Amino acid sequence: MTRVVACALALLLAAEPAAAGPLSELIFAPGAEAGAVPELSYAHERRMPEGLPEDAALPKPVSDEVLTLARTGGEAPRRALMRQGPGEAAPAPVSEFPLSGPDPVLLFFLESTARNMAALTGGSPFYIRNRIREALGQADLGTEVMAGDRPARQVVLHPFAADPHRASMGAFGELALVLVLEAGAEPPRFLSLSADTAVAEGGYHESLTLMAEDG
């Protein structure tokens, strides 16, 4: 990941939601990740809207990529986020984060969503980040669901449903963010995160899905 994106992730890490609701208190609580940090891998997928022009500045589709979160060694351990695409011999570093703070996988997902939406709509990534943070701050803990054989909680957010600039956002005005957390896990563990525009063939989709753990 470029230094620019890593810096944006750091801004998300430092920023607090505009309001502190039940969800934000859980996932942004200082020290929430300070305990044991298992190595977790997520399958990363991104599908782009159809009919986009050839433009190197636009985000690209992603398939069969794995995002891995692991604890580093040494006297001052941190959490390292790495990505590995198909055919790549070794994972490439994304960024490192302190043990205390929000889940880096969540931060990666939120920043990717904000940057990609900005690139596709011409909107401000700062404005988009702020609206997403506000939606997180106002959210409750969602509904109880089963994610495979695991009890979980599913939170569905529509950050731009009442936005005064929604008309200029195209399909992203109906963006839905779906966060699925393992019920009762300490620290909070995301089973999946997804971002989708209005349900229609050829829309934007990005997801991170927890892969089966060895053993």
Rank of each mutant, 00 (worst) to 15 (best):
residue 57 A to M: 13
residue 102 P to V: 01
residue 214 D to N: 12
residue 45 E to L: 09
residue 107 L to T: 06
residue 89 A to S: 13
residue 14 A to N: 07
residue 47 R to G: 07
residue 163 D to M: 10
residue 167 A to Y: 00
residue 59 P to T: 07
residue 121 T to R: 04
residue 104 P to R: 02
residue 165 H to D: 15
residue 15 A to S: 14
residue 185 A to M: 01
residue 214 D to T: 14
residue 22 P to G: 00
residue 125 P to D: 11
residue 31 G to R: 09
residue 14 A to F: 01
residue 150 R to V: 05
residue 198 A to D: 00
residue 25 E to G: 07
residue 41 S to Q: 04
residue 58 L to S: 05
residue 17 P to G: 11
residue 114 A to C: 13
residue 22 P to W: 00
residue 167 A to S: 13
residue 21 G to W: 07
residue 181 L to M: 13
residue 70 A to F: 00
residue 65 E to F: 14
residue 4 V to L: 12
residue 4 V to A: 15
residue 77 P to Y: 05
residue 96 E to D: 07
residue 61 P to E: 04
residue 197 T to L: 06
residue 104 P to K: 08
residue 81 L to W: 03
residue 146 M to T: 02
residue 168 S to L: 14
residue 32 A to H: 12
residue 212 A to E: 13
residue 123 G to P: 03
residue 23 L to S: 14
residue 149 D to F: 09
residue 129 R to T: 11
residue 203 G to F: 04
residue 198 A to W: 08
residue 106 L to S: 11
residue 27 I to K: 02
residue 83 R to T: 13
residue 147 A to F: 11
residue 125 P to A: 08
residue 127 Y to K: 07
residue 174 E to K: 15
residue 194 S to T: 08
residue 20 A to N: 08
residue 15 A to I: 03
residue 15 A to R: 04
residue 38 P to K: 01
residue 98 P to D: 09
residue 17 P to A: 10
residue 9 L to W: 13
residue 21 G to R: 07
residue 89 A to K: 13
residue 176 A to H: 07
residue 121 T to P: 11
residue 80 A to T: 03
residue 151 P to G: 05
residue 105 V to L: 10
residue 133 R to W: 03
residue 93 P to T: 03
residue 155 V to H: 06
residue 123 G to Q: 13
residue 67 L to S: 04
residue 11 L to N: 06
residue 143 T to Y: 00
residue 141 L to G: 02
residue 2 T to N: 10
residue 141 L to D: 03
residue 39 E to N: 00
residue 194 S to E: 08
residue 145 V to E: 12
residue 9 L to K: 09
residue 43 A to F: 02
residue 140 D to Y: 05
residue 115 R to G: 15
residue 104 P to W: 06
residue 118 A to D: 07
residue 3 R to E: 15
residue 179 L to N: 02
residue 203 G to P: 10
residue 146 M to Y: 08
residue 118 A to Y: 02
residue 78 R to L: 14
residue 95 S to R: 10
residue 160 F to G: 10
residue 79 R to N: 08
residue 177 L to W: 06
residue 71 R to E: 15
residue 2 T to K: 08
residue 80 A to Y: 01
residue 185 A to W: 00
residue 128 I to K: 04
residue 164 P to N: 01
residue 29 A to E: 07
residue 51 G to F: 05
residue 94 V to I: 15
residue 11 L to M: 06
residue 118 A to W: 12
residue 71 R to Y: 04
residue 36 A to K: 03
residue 213 E to M: 09
residue 116 N to R: 14
residue 190 F to V: 00
residue 79 R to I: 11
residue 211 M to E: 03
residue 67 L to N: 00
residue 116 N to K: 03
residue 175 L to Y: 11
residue 163 D to R: 12
residue 21 G to L: 03
residue 120 L to A: 02
residue 8 A to G: 04
residue 141 L to S: 05
residue 106 L to I: 07
residue 102 P to Y: 01
residue 184 G to R: 02
residue 42 Y to M: 09
residue 17 P to S: 11
residue 114 A to I: 13
residue 71 R to P: 03
residue 16 E to R: 08
residue 52 L to S: 09
residue 211 M to G: 02
residue 174 E to I: 01
residue 76 A to S: 13
residue 79 R to M: 12
residue 24 S to V: 06
residue 41 S to D: 01
residue 75 E to R: 13
residue 180 V to I: 10
residue 101 G to T: 06
residue 163 D to Y: 06
residue 45 E to D: 12
residue 66 V to S: 04
residue 181 L to K: 02
residue 14 A to S: 05
residue 26 L to Y: 04
residue 111 E to A: 15
residue 214 D to M: 09
residue 198 A to C: 00
residue 81 L to P: 06
residue 90 A to F: 14
residue 50 E to H: 15
residue 7 C to Y: 09
